[in-house]
Design a protein around this nucleic acid. Structure first.
Lengths: 211, 211
DNA sequence: CTGCATCCGCCTCGATACTG
DNA sequence: CAGTATCGAGGCGGATGCAG
């Protein structure tokens, strides 16, 4: 089990000692979508070795960042502990920063529909979301999810949407990070909109940065 | 030059491809304190190999995260580019998260006085800081710096302080992360205060979380 | 079949020596 | 001062094996 420490009396170095190793934050990303079992994690982390996943899970559990639950004789399941959930405050800024490099997405091969909820949450403003009149269907790279504003934040729901927004992930990254304006992306046909203009405006208001 | 990519079409994976390697964020931390030369970086990153530092600097410069300036025939100097400065939005949450593990600091050996300004900034609220009447002297682990509120945020200054706050870094982490209350730390003698109670209250108001 | 443990080739890391 | 060259050690990636 790896333990190579920076040995610095510095909060950032402590954080990097704990979660700075390869794959760790991607495991946290998966668990931000809910509890997962070993095999589910392995499926969504193509390229990770089983030994490495095993090591990471054991170490993060020992550190109190993950909880390991064994569903009554069943197979173990991993979830974020209280202190692990606080890593959301790290992951969302990292997602926003990664969006500053939209061209890096082109040659990427693996894509999962669940990953689209996290970038949305990374920009979502609960205050503006409270004004939504219903759910929205968002299609990114052909993978659709329907989201609505809830007390706990932006959640996926099964409701019928009041509007649909369609785009690819490169466009989403450019619009979210501000390198291309929403109006220009719509004019260029990179974003398709369906629904009343009022509902659509309310949708984008919730992603226009902090109130 | 390393290029091991996660190959995922995900903003977080893109970010980790760019800055997820060992030492990278600690280099960014150093450059958040201002431009630095090769040897200065090496001094403040004990344990890093010269080849690794060289590789990281070249790669980050090529990616547009760092700027390399050669002061007119002099020696090269490295600084954060515009996009590199945006990593502050990642580093400060990481510092706050690392403070949730105050006990991890005990066995740490290396400590540098400049590192104390970053944790302060990680919790500093400009709005509350504007009410400060002057500069404050902060001593953490016996290393002192004097800070004041400026337009650009919390800065180190040479002014005479209106008050002095003295503590060790473990106590600082506990109070900042809320695991120990300010009152209790003062009562236990882990924080020493010098100056008028009004000034001291104004100081801590600026570190009590977002307004 | 799931959840790991073991083994092995390779690449990265860390330390030292050396050079313009 | 600012790197480059080299090399041993160890973490990583992939395949295989195995117990519950």
């Amino acid at each position: 089990m790896s333990a190579r420490s920076y040995g610095q009396n510095c909060s950032l170095a402590v954080a990097m000692d704990l979660i700075g190793e390869r794959w760790t934050l991607l495991i946290v990303r998966e668990l931000m979508l809910g509890p997962r079992r070993f095999t589910q994690l392995q499926e969504n982390l193509p390229g990770i070795g089983t030994n490495l996943l095993s090591d990471r899970l054991a170490r993060l559990t020992r550190l109190g960042i993950l909880d390991r639950q064994r569903a009554d004789g069943g197979h173990p399941s991993y979830s974020l502990s209280q202190i692990g959930k606080e890593l959301e405050a790290v992951v969302y800024p990292l997602i926003r920063w990664g969006n500053l490099f939209p061209d890096r997405r082109r040659d990427s091969r693996h894509s999962r529909p669940e990953w689209n909820i996290l970038p949305l949450r990374a920009y979502y403003s609960p205050r503006a979301g409270q004004r939504w009149k219903g759910a929205y269907r968002v299609e990114i790279d052909g993978q659709a999810l329907t989201v609505a504003a809830r007390e706990t934040g932006l959640e996926t729901v099964d409701d019928d949407p009041v509007a649909t927004i369609t785009m690819d992930s490169v466009t989403a990254a450019k619009v979210a990070s501000g390198s291309v304006s929403l109006e220009r992306a719509v004019q260029a046909g990179q974003i398709s909109l369906a629904g009343s203009p009022a509902d659509i405006e309310l949708f984008f208001d919730a992603f226009s940065g902090p109130d």
